[in-house]
């Protein structure tokens, strides 16, 4: 896959899926800005993992609910990387609040990170991508942009918003050589699905396992590559057919 020499900013790369994506991109020769908000230790761990394989990366902190912090994060990243070819919007919030207990403040917290933050990260990297007439924007969403969660209504609403953000931006940004795609993972093992691994329920997970961050990362690497040049405006469900059950 043709990724070597590219540059990427991965948000929420101090934990879980983001960590896996940052690592796999770096493994393929991409210089990576590892974003985190509160997970500094996790981000440093991602950095160490990348350095151990000889990859190039650095960490950058920002609250992606805040446009000024996003702008600063992107400016630092672009300056250190020499531009940004790939943006992976991954940092997201899930509060699991009961329906009737959701407050205005909680609603805003989720929407400001998951929907507004995704748009404003995109907004900040566009000038760098336009300059090169090349860009890959990848939105990490969820199967819950289509299928209800039954545990966090506002989280699902934010994923519905991301679905349309991805489609609209694909249409609008195509003229600049920028593609925008959405990856919609199902259950991914970020430390919560050990029991499913121990005794896989094939009626829920036909492959006998949940996904791993590396599964998402592998797909992201393809979407970011030159081989995926014609792929834009798509949402790729990555759930081992779990949604079909």
């Amino acid at each position: 896959m043709s990724l070597a020499g590219r540059t990427a900013l991965v948000t929420g790369a101090g934990t879980g899926i983001g960590k896996g994506i940052a690592f796999e991109l770096a493994k393929r020769g991409v210089k990576v800005a590892i974003h985190y908000n509160a997970s500094e230790a996790g981000a440093l761990d991602t950095l160490r993992s990348i350095q151990q394989i000889g990859g190039e990366a650095f960490i950058v902190q920002a609250d992606v609910a805040d446009q000024q912090q996003i702008a600063r994060m992107v400016e630092i990243s672009a300056s250190k990387l020499g531009g940004i070819d790939i943006l992976v919007n991954n940092a997201a919030l899930q509060l699991d609040v009961n329906w009737f207990e959701y407050t205005e403040e909680q609603y805003d917290r989720i929407m400001n990170v998951n929907a507004k933050g995704y748009w404003q990260c995109m907004l900040s990297v566009i000038p760098y991508m336009k300059q090169k007439q090349f860009g890959r924007i990848i939105l990490i969403s969820s199967i819950h942009g289509k299928r209800p969660t039954d545990f966090d209504v506002v989280y699902a609403m934010s994923k519905g918003a991301i679905k349309m953000l991805g489609r609209e931006s694909a249409v609008e940004l195509a003229q600049y050589g920028i593609t925008v795609n959405t990856v919609a993972p199902g259950a991914i093992d970020v430390g919560k699905f050990k029991s499913a691994h121990a005794s896989p329920d094939r009626k829920k997970f036909p492959l006998g396992r949940v996904g791993m961050p590396a599964d998402v990362a592998s797909l992201v690497c393809y979407v970011a590559s030159d081989e995926a040049a014609f792929l834009t405006g798509s949402t790729i469900r990555l759930d081992g057919a779990g949604s079909l059950m």
């Binding site: 819950h144 609403m157 519905g160 918003a161």
Partner: peptide
């Protein structure tokens, strides 16, 4: 559109 995507999931 983003607002409508959110309402659909609601």
């Amino acid at each position: 559109s983003a607002s409508q995507g959110a309402i659909k999931m609601l």
